[in-house]
Amino acid sequence: MKKTMMMLLLALVSLGAYAQHEHGNMAGHDEGMQMAPEFKDKELGTAYGHYLEVKEALVASDDGKATDHSAMLEKALAKVENADAARETAAKMANATSLKGQRQNFDALSNEMAKLVKNGKLVKGELYLEYCPMANSNQGGYWLSNEKEIKNPYLGEKMLTCGSVKETIK
């Protein structure tokens, strides 16, 4: 019994030390995290959020999620002024039958979304216009992100970090 209690006590002390160690590692992480941008036009902010979900689905090479989020983006863009071209491209992505087709339309969608967010008057935070020269059969392609870290939606896991930040939008 004494041995069991001693082992239990040792396990608890070890767990506490581990938890404290992990907490210490998290202390500096808040400083590096980017604040989500906030737009004067709340509808644009909602649409931009859906755009990010489309981008993340493409990064993960998940065509089902990309289709679903493209459809949500299309609906959200219907409420945004001057967003007809972006809405039409989101509809093409939602109706694309392959991941390759979605990625081909993503460049046009990103260009249209970049125009919208640049005119959308950020009230808080910043976002990044990123570029991969190897996207679209070496024609290149842009996308928007909340973080400087490159997560390539055109090439997915094949070349996840291919690209660079071309512009900071504030």
Rank of each mutant, 00 (worst) to 15 (best):
43 E>K: 15
43 E>S: 15
45 G>A: 03
48 Y>C: 07
48 Y>I: 08
49 G>W: 01
51 Y>E: 09
51 Y>D: 04
52 L>H: 06
52 L>I: 10
59 V>K: 01
59 V>H: 02
60 A>C: 03
61 S>D: 14
61 S>F: 12
62 D>R: 04
63 D>T: 15
65 K>F: 09
66 A>S: 14
68 D>P: 01
69 H>C: 09
69 H>A: 12
69 H>E: 12
70 S>W: 06
72 M>Y: 13
72 M>W: 10
72 M>R: 14
72 M>P: 06
73 L>T: 06
74 E>V: 04
75 K>C: 09
76 A>S: 12
76 A>T: 07
78 A>Y: 01
79 K>C: 04
79 K>L: 09
79 K>H: 12
81 E>M: 13
81 E>G: 13
81 E>H: 14
83 A>S: 10
84 D>Q: 10
85 A>G: 08
85 A>D: 14
87 R>S: 13
87 R>D: 06
89 T>V: 14
92 K>D: 13
94 A>I: 02
94 A>T: 02
96 A>S: 13
97 T>S: 15
97 T>V: 15
98 S>F: 03
99 L>V: 06
99 L>N: 02
103 R>L: 02
103 R>M: 05
104 Q>M: 08
107 D>P: 04
107 D>I: 13
107 D>L: 11
107 D>Q: 14
108 A>N: 07
108 A>W: 01
108 A>E: 07
108 A>F: 02
109 L>I: 03
109 L>P: 01
111 N>H: 09
111 N>S: 11
111 N>R: 13
112 E>T: 03
112 E>V: 02
112 E>K: 08
113 M>P: 02
114 A>F: 04
116 L>R: 00
116 L>A: 01
117 V>I: 12
117 V>C: 08
117 V>F: 05
119 N>Q: 14
120 G>L: 09
120 G>W: 06
121 K>H: 09
121 K>A: 11
122 L>K: 07
123 V>H: 00
123 V>P: 00
123 V>L: 00
123 V>A: 01
125 G>K: 13
125 G>C: 12
126 E>G: 13
126 E>K: 15
126 E>N: 15
127 L>W: 12
127 L>E: 12
128 Y>G: 04
128 Y>I: 05
129 L>W: 11
133 P>S: 03
133 P>N: 03
133 P>G: 03
134 M>K: 10
137 S>G: 14
138 N>V: 00
138 N>F: 00
138 N>H: 01
139 Q>T: 01
140 G>K: 01
141 G>S: 00
142 Y>L: 09
143 W>K: 04
144 L>E: 03
145 S>E: 02
145 S>D: 08
146 N>S: 08
146 N>G: 07
147 E>N: 11
148 K>W: 00
152 N>W: 05
152 N>I: 07
154 Y>Q: 00
155 L>E: 08
155 L>T: 09
155 L>S: 06
155 L>Q: 09
157 E>S: 12
160 L>C: 14
160 L>Y: 14
160 L>T: 14
160 L>A: 15
160 L>S: 15
161 T>I: 10
162 C>S: 03
